[in-house]
Design a protein around this nucleic acid. Structure first.
Lengths: 119, 119
DNA sequence: TGTTTATATAAAGATTGACATATATTTCCG
DNA sequence: CGGAAATATATGTCAATCTTTATATAAACA
């Protein structure tokens, strides 16, 4: 459990608030207060999520006086990108024969409670 | 809430078992039983996770007799790839000025319970 | 030193989510 | 038709997680 794997990164990004935090950090480092006010989330909430993100290796912190500047680390995103590479064939439509069989229906998608039966 | 967004996809992939299922499906469609035995997860468990994946739009189903063949849909992965595009600059080290300031430390990373103070 | 600002942690309640066991449904086959 | 195979659902339980409120720490400042 040294390096954060894509699997655990998914868990970090699965939370709505955390994802919004990460997207704010995409353009550069931010303080806790800046995040809290810009996201209209209470400060302890932001702190807690930042702690989780930090423990998960997604962000780093830099202290300057009383303020803490959080920013994204690149490694986990690099790992995510690497993980996605295995799905490039799927993404670009190049499927194995087995996959192609069902990929060709290409019909519209509609989620349903029942995988089948219901239209 | 129509199309599965990256955000919700992260939630789907956050679960260990579901991620393993998805990775099996990467090479083509599989039946529930095949997944259950190959992953050593009980069949109801696999069915349940497949239902969640289906409701989330990550997989489709094809019925053939008593068996159901599950396979990956490409759209959510395409969306994921698209989402990652916004992080390409970060991944490749091209950061905004603000980001670069902290990116340059490039020191080793070590998760800790306390974001600071510790070491 | 006392007060304000910025951030972290604690505690408690509510919600969600996973897992295992048992059972129902559908299809195949003799 | 009756049994077996494949898959889905229901239920009860347990653990993890999020949210809020209150409080603690730590630095800045007057």
């Amino acid at each position: 459990m040294g390096m954060p794997s894509p699997g655990s990164t998914f868990g970090l990004l699965a939370d709505r608030t955390r994802l919004r935090i990460v997207e704010r950090l995409r353009s550069g480092e931010r303080t806790v207060g800046a995040l809290a006010s810009s996201l209209s989330v209470c400060q302890p909430g932001v702190s807690r999520h930042l702690r989780i993100l930090h423990e998960g290796g997604l962000v780093r912190v830099r202290a300057e006086g009383q303020r803490r500047f959080y920013s994204l680390r690149r490694q986990p995103f690099r790992d995510l990108d690497e993980w996605m590479r295995d799905y490039r064939d799927l993404i670009e439509g190049r499927m194995s024969r087995l996959g192609r069989l069902v990929e060709e229906d290409a019909g519209e998608f509609r989620p349903s409670a029942r995988p089948f039966l219901g239209d």
